[in-house]
Design a protein around this nucleic acid. Structure first.
Lengths: 205, 205, 205, 205
DNA sequence: GATGAATGAGTCTTCATTCAT
DNA sequence: AATGAATGAAGACTCATTCAT
């Protein structure tokens, strides 16, 4: 009983925290970190001004928690999908496809991540770097090194090419219409990348 | 005589304005628009805080003037170099090479442009879109359409491919070390893009 | 219980608001709207400078709230007293007497009202016009029209005469010594007005 | 020759000064002393910002000079007209009539005087008091005392009655339409005052 | 745990004034 | 005498944060 009661309480706490984080994502993505109003975030989540300080000690901490939460979701969604593919070109296609799906499924969070990515605050940059390291590793190891080892991709510098592949993703997935839907097609981006990566062109369109 | 005197005065005014703009570029690029302090900008330029308001009516106007100035420089530098090349693959290489040169020659301005590009303020976005239209046109017409017409580039959707080429530029040129020097080599980026664009692989490595 | 608690809280809020308004009346009456310092108003009320913005969204809103509050007090005090009199000459005497009493009882507020009355800001003028309409109506209907209907006052244009009666009040009641006490006697002003209004002079001194 | 040249120069100086004063009257009457912009005044007069400081050492000095200038004009215009009348009731009528004529002829200056009259700045008040002393004396001696000595006006306290007469003038002449034309008729005001002042009603309507 | 009144550091902006030309 | 760039004090307003209830 005590366990259940405690569990209930924890659930409530987690729900409140979650609502605050979602509200923060909306506000941060709409106005950027500095222009975002922490009072508005708390009020928009249905609480009063002070409540958010019971969950996050500062605006900065809230930002970092949100980066961690959204980044983790993003990374895990893509990693899981990519690793489920056996074939390396399928993995690359899957990388872009799932990445675009993330943007479509979580438009606010996706926009928030871009905000964080371009924040002038080094703390945000650093947090982004850390949380996205697994995705960099995924591209580098499970796609690029994997493909090169099989002779499917031509030999290229791993770090550099990883940056190019990531750049294509971030640059294209961030172009969305007013409803947050990506303007570009993930398949087109994947084709472009594959053209650049494949050892030979046969069999690719 | 009067003309010379007047010219001198105008020169001084232009110099003051230029110093203020440079100081603004430093401040905006370091802290972003909102966190930038307009008083600091004026003081860092060697004037008292009120002076900047003799040249720009508001922080917003200063930002827009800077976007226009730096953007123009950026666009013109690249356009001039690219159009000087006859051959289409040389044009593409030149596009990336000159773009990276701009970043190296004007690190502060380059960082500022990224700030503006990712500003949550729609006014800044719009100003960026307008000032960069000529560069988009350059890539679309003088490089991509030009190369496709000659059969050197494979047929692709112009708008989409333009975005991909631009994305590669912006994404890679923005990665710089602490001295503002690009981490990547423009030739590598150009090669990557060419692999993706060329109709056949012969002659490209 | 909850009701009492709530009531207590509301009382505190109202008291704070009232203190701020009183402080504002002092500052506005002493220096005029533009020269009044809103930070000083808040500090003089015993709060820090930001507090006043929890109650009034802007200096202008504070001014308008004060006009409304003080104007209402002024109008109601005079209206109540005048309407309690049956006889028309008594009403006119009462009008001036109560008016002067207001100035004596609320010297700061009275001086503030003059400030507002002569403000170059049309918004203030308009607010004054609206809040004082009932007092104009009182003079016009309950005094002048009333007295003319009885043949006690000679026939005159109502609007014009109302303005004359009001002018005499505002012009004389605003002359005060350094303690805010009126320099003139309300009875003298009332006599002067009655001489001008009465159909015949008999019985008036 | 030297004399003429000097005279010419003085004329030019006087003209410049006059243009600045007229411009100041416009600005002060429109926005009040504090909100008036001294730079705007100089620019509106057709000079550059700094010029006005060659004529008036400060905004305050400009204000005082304008009070003196306009007040003198006002006082002299009324005094001259009133003293030209022999008969005391004619003098009173003339006082209001000429006063209203001043408002009509110099609407900007008239509005400025009201601004000054209600300024919270004691310096302005004091300057107004000094410049208008002759007008107070005119009313007190050349109209009221004069009329009482002849038995035409009933005996009343001179100072008090002077204030009432002045109050009626200032309060009514300040009500103007958007073109600066008085809303009230000076004859009506004069009649009202005469009713209040005359020893007997015979012969007055 | 939730509340929201109070706080006060921080910032954009205005403008009277100075002074070198 | 006229100019206008530079100055810097001053003030309205915002908002992250605290804390008593």
């Amino acid at each position: 009983m005590a366990r259940i009661a405690k569990s209930d309480r924890e659930n409530t706490l987690q729900q409140t925290r979650q609502r605050l984080l979602e509200s923060a994502a909306v506000e941060f993505s709409a106005h950027g970190y500095t222009e975002a109003n922490i009072n508005t975030i708390s009020l928009a989540a249905g609480f009063s001004k002070g409540t958010i300080y019971n969950y996050f000690p500062s605006k900065q901490a809230l930002m970092l928690a949100l980066i961690a939460g959204v980044g983790k979701l993003h990374v895990e969604m893509i990693s899981a999908a990519v690793r489920a593919e056996e074939e390396v070109t399928a993995r690359l296609r899957c990388f872009y496809k799932t990445g675009f799906q993330f943007v479509e499924a979580y438009p606010v969070q996706a926009r928030f991540l871009l905000t964080a990515l371009n924040s002038p605050d080094m703390t945000h940059q650093q947090a982004m770097g850390e949380i996205y390291q697994p995705m960099m590793d995924l591209v580098e190891q499970d796609i690029l090194a994997f493909g090169m080892a099989q002779g499917i991709f031509r030999p290229m510098d791993l770090k550099t090419t990883t940056n190019l592949i990531m750049t294509l993703y971030l640059g294209t997935a961030s172009r969305v219409d007013s409803q947050g839907k990506p303007l570009m097609n993930s398949a087109v981006v994947a084709d472009f990348a594959l053209q650049a990566l494949l050892a030979e062109k046969r069999g690719e369109a």
